[in-house]
């Protein structure tokens, strides 16, 4: 029995090498689907749909959009970490919609992830969501009362998207407007509780990378370097299988 357990632990360790903790406890809530899989892209008569399969069921992740879209699609040749909540909505492109859903492209190549399905009658894509990319998004805000900002990140990533760069711009604008005496930047590292009970931990250095990047950008946006304090917490945040994506973050606090 001990031998079998050892083999099992080693096997799980092989599946989740770097930065992965593979202990089995309880599982996330039943309506959550947190898993790593190869993404699937399905062509349609309009926009391609992105899907992923978990335990024999197909889930709809989102539609192809643009760099200004809320949803950044996965990438073939890479696995994807899916963190979403099952809905009762009708299937889209053959998959059960997950909402909200957060996807993160796993950095390492996996050439087995290569499924592109043709368009079929009866598997239509829904209308594309309205673009948030408007002129308004490029304009600076007017209010200056906000003091705390949270910059979210994909799993194991310090890449700032079109949307998250806007958060930094706004934070810098307000810091300058209120002549902030200090700006605290704090980077975090998180863990994702997968639906199979395993925990997927972010790389050890990611909190530091995130914090330093945000700090440098704030300085680049005109904040005095002496006013910006950059810190990070190398200890991974606890996970609950629901709010884990929100914990992959950098917080900015403006102190007038």
């Amino acid at each position: 029995m001990k031998k079998a357990l050892t083999i099992l632990i080693v096997a799980i360790g092989l599946i989740f090498p770097d930065g992965t903790e593979a202990t089995r406890e309880d599982k996330p809530p039943a309506n959550r689907r947190n898993f790593v899989a190869c993404p699937i892209v399905r062509d349609t008569k309009t926009l391609p749909c992105w899907l992923a399969e978990y335990e024999g069921e197909l889930y709809f992740l989102g539609l192809q959009g643009s760099s200004a879209s809320e949803f950044y699609p996965p990438q073939l040749n890479h696995e994807v970490l899916v963190e979403g909540t099952v809905t009762n909505e009708p299937r889209i492109c053959g998959g059960i919609p997950l909402r909200p859903v957060k996807i993160s492209v796993i950095t390492e190549l996996n050439r087995a992830c290569n499924t592109l399905l043709p368009a079929e009658d009866g598997r239509e894509a829904p209308a594309a969501p309205a673009r948030r990319f408007t002129d308004d998004m490029r304009k600076a805000g007017t209010e200056t009362t906000q003091r705390d900002f949270t910059v979210p990140f994909d799993f194991d990533s310090d890449y700032l998207t079109f949307h998250t760069t806007r958060i930094l711009s706004e934070a810098a604008r307000i810091a300058k407007a209120v002549n902030a005496a200090k700006i605290e930047v704090l980077g975090y590292r998180a863990t994702t509780w997968l639906s199979n009970g395993n925990r997927l931990m972010e790389a050890q250095t990611i909190a530091e990378k995130r914090a330093k990047k945000v700090g440098e950008i704030l300085v680049g946006l005109g904040i005095s370097a002496s006013a910006v304090s950059v810190n990070w917490n190398p200890t991974p945040e606890s996970c609950d299988g629901v709010t884990d994506p929100e914990k992959r973050r950098v917080t900015i606090r403006i102190m007038p």
Partner: peptide
């Protein structure tokens, strides 16, 4: 459009039609 670094890898997805 597929496997083009700095097009497919910047949030547009790989591939994009």
């Amino acid at each position: 459009i597929r496997d083009a670094a700095h097009i497919n890898s910047i949030g547009l997805g790989n591939p994009i039609k």
